[in-house]
């Protein structure tokens, strides 16, 4: 098994945090894992992306030329990455921000209004965690309890209340797709 996912959005949306927490969760679940952030001038320009590879075997390349999944939080990211997804793969969209439709018809598309949901929960900055709830619901890459404990670890010194609201955000994302289905 080898699953590669690209997370993308603009700087400040917590894109790297999504990848980092997933990588940490996958490591805790016993998988081989790599996390590769895009670096350099590109990051400062407003967009941010990272690639996470999860495998039960050694990982050759941390780069994903044909990712199994992409998680996109803004429209430019959709345009940048939608054509890379492997046929049969999955595309997770933040539909609060992305108003356009994907041009792909050979992948599974999941629209999550994560910004609105996060706002309703009282902290718009948890939109990324809402996406993670939905993402792990579909992919099942890491069990939720392991992921949540990794999330708390990588958030490190953050206040308990922040971790608590992120737990709620995760649950909301997780529940959302159940309801939608």
């Amino acid at each position: 098994m080898m699953v590669k996912t690209i997370f993308s959005g603009f700087g400040g949306q917590g894109v790297l945090m999504m990848g980092y927490s997933l990588a940490h969760g996958a490591m805790s679940a016993g998988y081989h894992v790599t996390f590769l952030p895009a670096y350099g001038a590109e990051v400062r320009g407003g967009t941010a992306n990272c690639t996470v590879a999860v495998s039960d075997d050694e990982i050759a390349s941390p780069i994903a030329s044909e990712p199994n999944n992409i998680v996109v939080l803004n429209t430019p990211s959709l345009y940048a990455f939608q054509n890379r997804v492997a046929p049969g793969g999955a595309l997770f969209l933040n539909s609060s921000i992305i108003a356009v439709e994907s041009s792909r018809h050979d992948v599974r598309i999941f629209k999550i209004p994560s910004s609105e949901m996060a706002e309703k929960l009282g902290n718009p900055r948890t939109a990324n965690t809402v996406m993670m709830g939905a993402f792990l619901k579909i992919t099942g890459l890491v069990p939720p309890d392991i992921y949540l404990s990794s999330m708390a670890t990588v958030m490190g010194s953050k206040k308990k209340s922040v971790i608590e609201i992120n737990r709620k955000a995760f649950a909301a994302g997780h529940e959302f797709l159940k309801i939608a289905e």
Binding site: H32, V33, T34, F35, L36, P37, Y39, P62, I63
Partner: peptide, 10 residues
Amino acid sequence: DGMMGQMMEP
């Protein structure tokens, strides 16, 4: 190289 430097791994 840059990839080894930027990549996270256990």
